[in-house]
Design a protein around this nucleic acid. Structure first.
Lengths: 183, 183
DNA sequence: GTCTATACACCGATAGAC
DNA sequence: GTCTATCGGTGTATAGAC
């Protein structure tokens, strides 16, 4: 396998933060998940947990962009692009199996560091979604509300899937959501 | 003041758990928020953080029942009752200012203790919501999906409101949601 | 680049005086 | 019912050998 080992390492670390949250992820758990010793983690991330979270956050935003939001700019009709975006979001979360790190890092003490960056990133995303809704004929204000409703639904399904401990809930919910978008 | 001081104490503790999460809420912070010493907290909750979380969870479920779900059983038309339920949920979260403790305790290490109870409680809530949707003419399967979509939207708005750091987002979203229910 | 061993702060929790 | 003082354990982080 010629997969950059750095990517594997980041994926393993991300899994711990997703499951335990920022405060809940201890260096012992992060070390176990990666198969490295604590000191070795500090070789890769001299800044410790703080740096890990910062790197993983940038990485998560980039992946969301690539897998979901990039599908908003295409040649298909606007509703079809929105449905593709929802499908991309599902891919990003691995069909609801994994949480979104952006949401994870917006809570607790991590929010004090990353809160502003996350808030402005979400506003950018909402503008892009709203622009697509405007193509469907909605006026700016209404388009913004529709964009907000869509993101709330996506993150809502992601959250309630955890509350219900059932990823089938996520898959069915997003399927339904895609259908309402293309009707 | 003739307000039961126990209620004030619980409210102060709940605020810390809501803002910092279960792991993030330290005894030092809990003590500071209540104006008590750590040892005094152990007088009220001999089981420590574990007991606080358990008591607060029961209390939160009871308040959700009282403020939101109880409005599903009334004499008005089903859509109107659903809108009332949404309004009650808004009250419960103080218009998005405060997070839902049930959602907070479904994450990290607290999930290992309370996860099962939370999952079955949410299933009960979904059944009650689905029953109301059935009154509007939806078949059981569809009613269940509509119930899931409604809860996902509510908790989604609560989450994205935190991501955006803007409670106006929550108020507008729920207003919009109520409107779609009664149309 | 990985390890063992360790430093030191803070965590949850308890003892015991008042 | 509240406090101060303190315990043992674990958290993050570092030193230094290999």
């Amino acid at each position: 396998m010629r997969v950059p080992s750095r990517a594997i390492l980041l994926n393993q670390l991300e899994a711990v933060f997703q499951m335990r949250g920022y405060e809940g992820a201890t260096l012992t758990q992060l070390a176990e998940a990666t198969g490295l010793g604590k000191a070795s983690l500090y070789h890769h991330f001299p800044g410790g947990k703080t740096e890990m979270a910062a790197v993983l956050l940038r990485e998560a935003v980039a992946r969301l962009e690539q897998q979901a939001f990039s599908r908003l700019s295409g040649s298909q009709p606007a509703p079809e692009r929105l449905a593709q975006f929802v499908a991309g979001f599902s891919d990003y979360t691995e069909q609801g199996e994994r949480n979104c790190l952006v949401a994870v890092l917006a809570q607790g003490s991590a929010a004090e560091i990353h809160g502003n960056a996350i808030a402005s990133q979400f506003d950018i995303w909402l503008r892009r979604l709203a622009a697509v809704y405007e193509e469907t004929g909605s006026r700016p204000k209404r388009a913004r509300r529709e964009a907000e409703a869509l993101l709330a639904s996506l993150y809502g399904y992601l959250l309630t899937t955890r509350l219900l401990a059932d990823t089938g809930h996520f898959r069915r919910g997003l399927k339904r959501l895609r259908k309402t978008l293309t009707d």
